[in-house]
């Protein structure tokens, strides 16, 4: 996948998705209410942003996505995508969707899969072939392009699922648990891809219960719990801890710690802590893998240098 850096969100005020009092109650055969999967939800997603739906299992994330896609019908309220009702098939021309698990046709191989979905968009043969080849390379399945999907591992299936979601170069990408089943490298690649999509002006809506993934890529999030919207806002606003100030410095000698403490105390600061920042386990893992790939045969030194900072 194409690595990318995190650039500012080129979002606009144009609303791509809008939910108005959207709710869903699952009913049994006799029409009796079985479960209120989503309580009235009001939501707007703007063009160019990465929007995260966050919540534990059964919180209504996937139900929301399915309602937006017209896969299920709302009990009440309305959903609009690109200004059209969610049940309007025409909206799908501009949408890419990755389901919770990659529900694909197991008897097709990767090329056939992308060719099939490309045909559904009415893409000409040359464009289909070009897009399919590029996407297969992008998701790292070049060597497995002729294998039927029933032979794929879960991660590989996820990758081809992502490729099919992008076959039409969509303006809006809906991703349901996009990193589910992927190894840390795959997870990072998907997150890079999501950020890359945003840089290309696409709108991404992803739902996940992996908090780190959401935190890494999303501009805004909605937190759902038991079918109800609990929080909605920009990630940085929601995560900001007010009343605490953080400084960072490189190559500061331990001898200077006391001086710093003294200055801060003089300015009325309390609960002063000075120490080394921690890297994430994901970054550490990726560094190890990259290092190993760059220098094959080199032994791991983590045990020998337990306090070695990341990136050294």
């Amino acid at each position: 996948m194409t690595p990318s850096n995190t650039a500012p969100a080129p979002s606009s005020d144009e609303v791509v998705i809008e939910a108005r009092n959207l709710s869903k109650v699952y009913r049994d055969f006799w029409g009796r209410d079985k479960k209120a999967a989503l309580k009235p939800l009001n939501l707007a997603v703007k063009k160019g942003e990465i929007f995260g739906l966050l919540g534990p299992n059964g919180s209504g994330k996937t139900t929301t996505l399915k309602l937006l896609l017209g896969l299920i019908f709302p009990t009440s309220g309305e959903a609009f995508v690109f200004g059209r009702p969610a049940t309007d098939v025409a909206k799908n021309e501009r949408i890419g969707y990755l389901p919770e698990e990659s529900y694909l046709y197991k008897f097709l191989d990767a090329e056939e899969t992308l060719d099939f979905y490309g045909r559904l968009f009415g893409m000409p043969p040359e464009e289909r072939a070009r897009r399919a080849a590029a996407l297969i390379e992008m998701v790292g399945l070049g060597r497995d392009r002729k294998r039927q999907l029933r032979e794929y591992s879960k991660g590989m299936t996820r990758r081809i699922g992502i490729a099919q979601a992008l076959i039409n170069d969509p303006e809006l990408v809906l991703l349901d648990e996009p990193t589910s089943g992927l190894d840390p490298i795959g997870t990072r690649e998907v997150k890079d891809l999501i950020i890359d999509l945003k840089q290309r002006g696409k709108t991404v809506v992803m739902c996940s219960h992996l908090l780190a993934d959401v935190e890494d890529v999303c501009d805004r999030i909605a937190v759902l719990h038991q079918g109800e919207l609990k929080e909605l806002g920009r990630v940085e606003d929601l995560l900001r801890v007010t009343g605490v100030t953080q400084f960072q410095a490189r190559d500061l000698a331990p001898a200077a710690y006391d001086a710093v403490r003294k200055v801060l105390a003089e300015h009325g600061a309390s609960d002063i802590e000075i120490g080394h920042p921690r890297t994430t386990l994901e970054d550490l893992f990726l560094d190890v893998v990259r290092d190993t790939e760059a220098r094959p045969g080199r032994r791991a030194q983590a045990a020998a240098t337990p306090d070695k900072p990341a990136g050294a």
């Binding site: 896609l69 017209g70 896969l71 098939v89 025409a90 799908n92 021309e93 949408i95 969707y97 389901p99 698990e101 529900y103 694909l104 046709y105 979905y117 559904l120 968009f121 009415g122 699922g161 099919q164 039409n168």
Partner: peptide
């Protein structure tokens, strides 16, 4: 049942 239909109905398919 396999939900493969979801990847079809979310394309511009009637």
């Amino acid at each position: 049942k396999s939900k493969a239909i979801q990847t079809v109905t979310t394309k511009p398919v009637r």
